[in-house]
Nucleic acid binder design. Sequence first.
DNA 1: GGTATAATTGCACAGTCGTACAAGAAACTG
DNA 2: CAGTTTCTTGTACGACTGTGCAATTATACC
Lengths: 173, 173
Amino acid sequence: MARPVDPERRAELLRLAVDYAIEHGVADLTLRPLAEALGVRPNTLVHHFGGKERLLSEILNGVRDRLRGMRAAMAEQNGGDAVLATWRWTADEERLPFFRFFFEAYGVALRHPERYEAFLRRVVADWLPEGGEREATLELAVQRGLLLDLLTTGERERVEGALALFAELAAAV
Amino acid sequence: MARPVDPERRAELLRLAVDYAIEHGVADLTLRPLAEALGVRPNTLVHHFGGKERLLSEILNGVRDRLRGMRAAMAEQNGGDAVLATWRWTADEERLPFFRFFFEAYGVALRHPERYEAFLRRVVADWLPEGGEREATLELAVQRGLLLDLLTTGERERVEGALALFAELAAAV
DNA sequence: GGTATAATTGCACAGTCGTACAAGAAACTG
DNA sequence: CAGTTTCTTGTACGACTGTGCAATTATACC
């Protein structure tokens, strides 16, 4: 027997890769610049993850887990899934890079459904708020549509005005 | 003097390139396969468009113009910009490839705002329906969020149920 | 210590990329 | 016809891609 496998090393590399991907995007991610940013040779990544494709899918999983963790932390603080609370968490300035990455990955996943099947299978179901089917679907659509708008224009006032309108409409029924 | 410039040739190539891009996507578009599909050498594209970057931006313009044309045709048929009418036009089966392309381009544009500045400047403003600022922003967000859901899950019934709910809410006020 | 395995690396290879350059083919004017 | 310009192509170049293979270094157990 001899040197045992070190699972922490792999996890460490993945954490760093996730950081890098969130900052630099996923569409034109390549091994060499990524490896260099991680202070490592490209082969090291191949050794640990078995190739670019697999690494990419692990990165997507990593981002999802990270967001899920943050969301769980929010759910504790904030009791309900009220529309406004969810929005405040989502559209927080510190979270925007995550969602920029999210929509970029979403776009390429829609283009290559076979390659990103795992992502697409969860990208709606994982985020549907609780409640009736129609209500939940509509709420998620509003959050995503407005977030897209905010990421594009940065016009937070207009976007949040629209969200307030939605909250009013929903409360009036 | 001599052989005059043929603007029709360039327009023809652009039309074909737009067709190709809608079908194959924009994120991993490269000149050689595109040129081959068009029955032409890559150099021909460089000659007419001056390089990949410029061609790409013309393709985006082309898709936008094409959608705008289709939308104008709808506006004639259908008087108003009622939420349901807009949705019916948008989510028509024949239009979905356009919007798959749209969201893919949207994602990479959010990643590289400097490269796709023209796209981002219009992607919200061009599609805001008429009406109050809050109402228009919310409507656009709902349409886009639900369209994203439909493209992902294909669960048209659930998605259109959410749209109907939104129409009810909006009508009740 | 020796030894076995993990982790990392150097090197190399075939493939693809965008595109610059020059030459050939085509279409117009005089 | 010759002359000029556009259109198209062949060839080629340097850059970059993912990754296979062998060697090296590091870390564990006996």
